[in-house]
Computed example of a mutant assay.
Amino acid sequence: MKVADRARQAGTASLSARDWKQFVEDPSPSVRRALAARRDVPSWVLDRLAGDGDRRTRQAVVDNPGCPPELLLACLGDADRQIRWAAVQHPNADRAVRESAVRSPDREARWAAAQLRELEPDLIQAVIADTDWQVREQLAISTHSASVLEALMQDPDARVRGEVALNELATETQLWRLAEDSSAAARAKVAARDVLPQVVQRRLAEDRSGTVRWWLCVSHDRDIALMRKMSADPDELVASHAMTALEELTRHS
């Protein structure tokens, strides 16, 4: 039987116990991948194919909606980062998978876990305390918790605090505090928001950093009076962009 025919049968036909065993040992990766993708695949077949030498077959295993939590846990040790990532974010991942990912030495697994909305409070605290700023940054981007955002406002890395500013749940009070951050990079993130309260815009218009003021001119729904004022900015680049913004706003007013 040709490979294409075997793959079609492995992926769609009603299989006997003998068929399952035959196809799981098939020399063609395309046949084994078709088998791994089946919704009715027995758990022992997924177990077997999770260690397959073909990366795409292992990916099919971890992408299978029926992949059980215990196998997802095992997949956290896969050599391929995309497979580890998929295991963490699989709908069947349970507390054991999430905890293993959060406490893993593998940054990719911790990064994937930081994006999960259903992280338990103790695991969130572990992410907040993570030594890698990019893991904490992912939490700032993904969280839907006001208390987590408040905790990350205190992060020692300005890049993390800056992502708090871009989170849609950041409050006006938090944005004001970040607009007074010691780091220009964090303040620039505030200025780069698409929606920014006018009181915060006015504060940033007086920022000592030309980069922050430039972002204020190009990033969001700008205030015509503020752009008129900033068209006289001492920084020529800021003034030029403010003037362009003012012309656009005037045309559409």
Rank of each mutant, 00 (worst) to 15 (best):
L178M: 12
L119D: 07
R107W: 11
A17H: 05
N64F: 10
Q198D: 08
E70A: 11
W133K: 10
S14Y: 04
S145W: 01
E206Q: 14
R32M: 08
W214L: 13
Q134K: 13
V31Q: 05
L204D: 04
R58P: 11
R202D: 14
E163I: 01
D235S: 11
N167M: 14
M230E: 05
H90M: 12
D122F: 03
T57E: 02
P121I: 07
R39G: 12
M1F: 02
I141G: 01
A79C: 11
H241G: 00
D26G: 12
T143N: 07
P42C: 09
L204P: 02
W176M: 13
A170F: 01
L204N: 05
P65A: 10
E118R: 10
A158V: 01
S209D: 13
H90Y: 13
D19T: 11
A239Q: 06
M227A: 15
S219A: 14
P121F: 08
A158N: 08
L15Y: 05
D63C: 07
Q154P: 00
S30A: 10
R228Y: 06
R38G: 10
A114C: 07
S16M: 12
W214D: 03
D223W: 05
M227D: 08
A93W: 04
R38M: 07
P105C: 12
L216Q: 07
